[in-house]
Amino acid sequence: MNFIPKKWIPLLTTATVFVLLFSAASWQYEGFASMYVVADLFSENAFLGITAIGMTLVILSGGIDLSVGSVIGFTSIFVATMITDRGMNPIAVWMMALLLGTSLGALMGALIQVYKLPAFLVTLGGLFFARGMAFFVKPEAVQIDHPIYDSLGDIAIPIGGGAELGVAPLIFLSVFVIVLVITHFTRFGRNLYAIGGNEESALLMGLPVARTKIFVYTANGFLSALAGITMTLYMDSGNPINATALELDAIAVVVIGGTLLTGGVGYVAGTMLGLLIYATIYQITFFASLRSSLATIAIGVLLLGFIVLQKLIHRK
């Protein structure tokens, strides 16, 4: 294995696991290897994908954000209520939702960086706060029925094999491409790696550590709100209980995607692979009519495997 750089091992493992999983499922279940299933992998998990990409940035910087699921839930009910109950224009509502999510992210980032509070605790606070606010907005599900949602719902890009991608997966794929570019071609993106790799060194190298760290939580707040909006587009409704405990799935996807939980090592592309593995596992339990709790356990086992693998690789 000497010819493979150590840092590629988790990513290559992820890719191998995905290929094996998908091939095995295709061989076992008729109709699995179809573009419909592929389209489904993206569509059903678009909001998880968006938030996992945001989580990748936070984890790369050496932090963690547990508030994402609640922010998604809050955004979904906020958007639905404002459009349906208040009759507001969806575009204005989206802007407001994005602003709220971004502000919460910025606030948490500032608390973490300026007051040196543990990230998991501050974002736990954010988790409580956003979930509570979601129920404060409206304690039950709200349908969205608006011409803009109808016309966005009609968007469908054929991807061959008769399958189509709707607006939700398209937003997800755009976010993926943009963040991919940011992490590889901007100083901000590279600084994230540096800070996660060794914050002390990054400071000594004169990198803007504080600014970058606050910004990464802010960006994640924005992406969580965007994920919430995407969810309303996919479901045509909002619900305060939406995306409960989604932060755990997002973290699992990021880690399975080969990103080191201690920060500094990982790829946004890996997170995409992680998401595909996650989605395929659930797809398999569906095809095999197995209990979906088996999928949760399988994800937990993968998570354990990857964390231990990372530990062994990076052991000095």
């Binding site: 840092k7 100083r187 590279r190 600084n191 790696y193 540096a194 790799g197 060794n198 002390e200 060194s201 990054a202 000594l204 190298m205 004169g206 990198l207 500094g264 090592v265």
Partner: peptide, 15 residues
């Protein structure tokens, strides 16, 4: 005081 998992080129030019 460098970043172990970034390339040599990046470590020299970071920031």
């Amino acid at each position: 005081n460098l970043i172990p998992h970034l390339s040599v080129a990046e470590n020299i030019t970071l920031g």
